[in-house]
């Protein structure tokens, strides 16, 4: 699908046409996965940064920025957030599984892997925590997802979720506190299976 086509779909969906999302989703997901694979392969210690970068780059590639409003962009990031979260968590689990399974990666014990392994754990822990949070406050979990995985601003997040900015800000702050508390309970060293 070409950029103009994707752009058009995004605008349509942004304007309320639910059906456009059906066509949009596989395209976005494929692109995200493709780019994520490239980025994650670099084994940089900061996956979360990668997430934002991946989404931004996917956006640049798929959408014609001159013709969309910032709200359209925010909506794009809204769906991208969920996708990228999935991609990252799957990747993290995959990496750990590979290490457990005695794959090649498990043999290299250098510093970078050590750090990235902690990051993998954090991503999984965050994912779990977010799941827990979404059971008592789905909107708040969404706020975290949007901001953390795609770097959306408060304004943009409010736009995507169609709530007020003060709600987003409040949710962000209390989520930070809650998540920090929850995640502080994870062990310092990854568990040895």
């Amino acid at each position: 699908m070409t950029t103009p086509e994707v752009t058009q779909l995004l605008k349509q969906w942004s304007d309320g046409e639910r059906a456009a999302l059906d066509s949009l989703t596989p395209v976005v997901y494929d692109e995200l996965r493709r780019l994520a694979a490239i980025y994650l392969h670099r084994e940089r210690p900061d996956h979360t940064l990668q997430a934002t970068a991946v989404v931004h780059e996917a956006y640049m590639r798929l959408v014609d920025q001159q013709s969309v409003r910032w709200q359209n962009r925010a909506h794009f990031f809204g769906i991208a957030a969920q996708m990228i979260r999935r991609i990252l968590v799957d990747h993290a689990r995959g990496v750990r599984a590979a290490k457990r399974g005695g794959g090649v990666a498990a043999l290299s014990l250098d510093e970078a892997l050590g750090v990235s392994e902690k990051r993998d754990l954090e991503i999984e822990a965050l994912d779990d925590a977010l799941r827990t949070l979404s059971q008592i406050d789905p909107q708040q979990a969404r706020v975290v997802e949007l901001r953390f995985f795609t770097g959306l601003s408060i304004e943009e997040t409010a736009e995507v979720l169609d709530v007020s900015e003060s709600t987003v800000k409040r949710d962000w702050v209390s989520a930070k506190a809650w998540l920090f508390r929850e995640l502080s309970k994870i062990p310092a060293k990854p568990e040895v299976p």
Partner: peptide, 8 residues
């Protein structure tokens, strides 16, 4: 914490 997602 968590701001690192948006701050390098």
């Amino acid at each position: 914490f968590m701001e690192e997602a948006v701050v390098s």
